[in-house]
């Protein structure tokens, strides 16, 4: 039980969880009458088959998962159970569109930062309500952040049907943002946009913050034991909780802004297929490590990109992919627990 084997476990756990998921998914596919080998092969081709599949599909779809996954990982690290990344993402997307549309003539170097900052601010604002309820009244954030998601979704629905509806008035969507507000391409000839790089940079920054700075250390201490933080660390846990909550909301809001500015260029109902929820799986599979979130976000991006191919080439309905995503969460939790049980048995014996 040296510290060395303990340090290895997060990667091992994640790998074991993925393997377990594949095994269970294969069994279920077989039960459902689909040859698992064909399904997985189609899924893999769809995600990694060509350079363009990988960059324009897998990585593009990984981008919102990367940002929301980082948001969730940061919050969970501070023991803030922010289940509200989905709502914060919607708030961010709405704010981004509103700002970009309001600045039609502005040059890109102004409008893009303004758009993204507005998205982050809106996400933080959306998170501030549950944060205030948690720190001020002790209301559990699992419920409040979750419920705020529905408020955000309905608000988005209302806005794209009414006040922000496109001037043509045909679809329930906003006007397209001006071209200056579009995020530039990251890899020429593909659809991968600057948002992915922003995600990577935030992942590195968060990792540095958590492991190398006093503030990040405090956040980890509060997450590990709020009592010990207050008694032995001699600092108040509450400001740290606020910070984690708002920063998490801001990053999730940024995910919405990046998606609007980089991919859809407008806001409409159903912008997100539930990234804010998948983000929880992304963060947990990464064991809340920001750098690992980059990897797990790409894994889930691949699932999403490969799902369509699986339906097309192997005839497996795409909803199976949603099932696989859910299996990953179950597998992470199960593998984690059984590892802990094994480890404690080992250390006792």
């Amino acid at each position: 039980m040296s510290t060395r084997t303990r340090a290895l476990t997060p990667a091992l756990t994640a790998a074991a969880a993925l393997l377990a998921t594949l095994a269970v998914a294969a069994a279920l596919l077989a039960l459902g009458g689909y040859p698992p080998g064909d399904a997985f092969a189609a899924l893999f081709r769809g995600a990694f088959g060509t350079w363009d599949r990988f960059v324009s599909f897998t990585l593009v779809r990984a981008t919102p998962l990367l940002l929301t996954g980082l948001a969730v990982a940061l919050a969970f690290k501070a023991r803030v159970w922010n289940i509200g990344a989905e709502g914060q993402l919607h708030a961010g997307a709405l704010a981004a569109v509103a700002v970009a549309v309001a600045l039609p003539g502005a040059p890109g170097f102004l409008v893009i930062p303004a758009t993204l900052l507005a998205a982050a601010a809106a996400g933080a604002l959306w998170a501030s309500a549950p944060a205030a309820m948690k720190t001020g009244m002790g209301v559990g954030e699992v419920i409040t952040t979750l419920l705020m998601n529905f408020v955000a979704l309905f608000m988005a629905q209302f806005l794209v049907q009414g006040p922000l509806r496109e001037s043509r008035g045909v679809f329930n969507q906003t006007d397209e943002i001006p071209p200056a507000a579009h995020l530039p391409d990251l890899v020429p000839g593909t659809r991968l946009h600057l948002g992915f790089l922003i995600g990577i940079l935030i992942a590195i920054a968060l990792w540095l913050y958590l492991t190398r700075t006093p503030g990040g250390f405090r956040l980890r201490a509060v997450g590990a034991s709020p009592q010990a933080a207050e008694v032995s660390g001699r600092f108040r846990a509450q400001p740290v909780v606020w910070l984690a909550f708002l920063a998490s909301g801001a990053i999730a809001g940024l995910a919405g802004g990046v998606q609007v500015a980089g991919v859809t260029h407008r806001m409409y109902e159903g912008l997100s297929p539930g990234w804010g929820y998948t983000a929880i799986a992304v963060a947990l599979l990464a064991r809340l490590n920001p750098l690992a979130v980059v990897v797990t976000a790409i894994v889930f991006g691949a699932l999403s990109a490969g799902g369509g191919a699986m339906q097309r080439d192997a005839g497996v309905p795409e909803v199976w992919v949603r099932g696989i995503e859910a299996l990953v969460i179950l597998a992470v939790l199960t593998v984690d627990r059984s590892w802990q049980a094994l480890a404690s048995r080992g250390s006792r014996g």
């Binding site: 510290t3 250390f217 590990a224 010990a228 933080a229 008694v231």
Partner: peptide
């Protein structure tokens, strides 16, 4: 209160 169990000794000193 005295320790964070999942922290190393170093990290606990850092408190």
């Amino acid at each position: 209160e005295g320790l964070v169990n999942e922290f190393t000794i170093s990290e606990n000193v850092a408190l």
